[in-house]
Every structure is written in structure tokens, then in C-alpha cells.
Computed example of a mutant assay.
Amino acid sequence: MYERDQITSVGGLPITGGDLEAFVRSFQQREFDEAQPRIGTPVSPAEQQPVQEALPIEGDDVAQTAVAGAQAAADTRRARVNATIDDPQQDESPAAQPTALTTVDRYYLAWTNFQTEHGEEPKAEQLSAYLAGRGMKGRGGKPVSPSTLRRYLLPFRVYTLWAEQRVRTANPPLEVIAQECTSRGVTAQHNRPLTTDYIADQVDDFERRWHALTRHHMAARQ
């Protein structure tokens, strides 16, 4: 740090590790002496100097600032070492922490893969058969019930539109997503328009899925 800031000893000589040790000892002694109460006859400022003289350093104030900055940086580095590093975006919010894929996340992946292969969204019965063909079955080794899958189809559609906005911003605007749902025919039961309140209720799980899928795809590429 002294070399970076061009802080040198007397005569422009480089500062060595030994010089710094002497400087630190002097600084500590000076702090200790100043903290002690003075008893007896006042003495002149010259007589109040510590026994061990500080190493003459050009830019002494800058040097002390640099030492303080280095300590702060070291503390910061120690804090970062203890932080979770699995998440590429380093997002600290609980919803954004990386998690393993849930069963429903895997249903969603199968739902998107079916569309890639067949060019259309699968019905619940088709998704059930598609999952079974890939070894994902329900209780007793039977295909996942279409009635179970049917409840996820609407959230899957909304998540897809939410994810399109999530690529652009960390806080996808709910109004824009609601408008996209309307324009693409994604509606609630009885063709009712989806509200921002409905989307807001899904956001925490959407954010969790976003990070889980991101981590899954990154692992698949390794």
C-alpha cells in the first residue's frame, strides 16, 4: 500500500517491513502515553515525546489513513469469506438464496421441454404421460395424476411471463406482467383477467424458482 501511494522513508528510500514494525510500535506507545493521566509538574511539549521516536515518513497523515483503510478492507474481506458464495448474483434476500429443484420445478422443466419438442403446451394428461416416460411418477409408481398437474398449469404460464421480465430487471413490474397475461390469453378460471394481487402472491416462489433453475442450468453446463 505504501508503494502504491508512493509513501517513502527519509531520502525517498522504500519502506521495509522492519520500518513498519517500528512505526506501529511507536504509534501504539504514543497512543498509550496520551491516554495516561499526567501527574506532577507540567512539562514542555518537547518532553512529552515518547521514548521511541516514530520513523520519519513522508506523508505521515496519508500513511495513517492507509493503515486504517487496510484494516477496514481486511475486515471486509473476512466478512465476505463467511458469506454464501453459491448464488452467482450474490443476492442476500431469503427468497433469492439458491435451493435445490423441487418436484414442482421439475414438472415445470418437463412442461417447457414438451413445448420445445412438440411446439405446443401440453394438457395435464399429456404432461403426466411425458413425465412417466422420463421416470417421474407419483405414489405407488403410477403416473402423476393429471388433476395434480392441472393446478400448476396457470402458475407455469404466469411464471414464464414473469421470467421474461426478470431477465431485464430484479423487480419485474407486476402491471406489465398482468398486461402480458391479458394480451397472450393467460387468464384465471372463467377467463377472468389475472390481477397484480394474484401475481404478487406468487412472486416469492417465482424468485426462488428463478434461482433454483439458474443454478440447475449452470450445473448442467459444467
Rank of each mutant, 00 (worst) to 15 (best):
A200R: 15
Q189H: 09
T116M: 08
V203D: 02
A72S: 02
R168I: 04
A100N: 04
Y2H: 08
E58D: 10
A79D: 06
S128K: 05
E180I: 08
A35F: 06
T116P: 00
R134G: 07
K137Q: 14
T99P: 04
T182N: 05
R150L: 12
D201Y: 12
E47Y: 02
A200E: 13
R25T: 10
F27Q: 02
Y152R: 14
L131H: 02
V51R: 12
T102W: 07
L161Y: 02
V144H: 05
R38L: 15
E164D: 12
E125M: 11
L153S: 04
Q64Y: 05
V81G: 07
A79N: 04
T16H: 07
Q97A: 07
R157H: 01
L101M: 08
L149Q: 02
W210K: 08
R151M: 09
H190S: 11
Y107P: 01
F114L: 01
Q89H: 10
G135P: 03
A163R: 04
T160P: 06
A96Y: 02
Y2N: 03
R78D: 15
Q71G: 09
T182A: 08
P94N: 04
A79Y: 09
L161C: 03
H118M: 10
P146W: 07
V24K: 05
G12A: 06
D19T: 11
Q90M: 11
Y198L: 14
A73M: 03
E58H: 01
W111L: 07
A124P: 08
M218D: 08
L109P: 06
A68N: 01
P155R: 12
A54M: 12
E164W: 11
P155Y: 07
A178S: 10
M218H: 13
T41F: 05
Q28H: 08
S128M: 07
Y2Q: 12
R78I: 13
L161Q: 00
P193F: 10
D105P: 01
L154A: 07
P173W: 12
A124M: 00
L194D: 01
E175H: 11
P56Q: 05
V186Y: 06
V144W: 08
Y152S: 10
R166L: 14
N191A: 13
G135E: 09
Q29T: 15
S93D: 00
G140T: 03
L101H: 06
R80S: 14
G59E: 03
D86A: 13
V158F: 06
F156L: 00
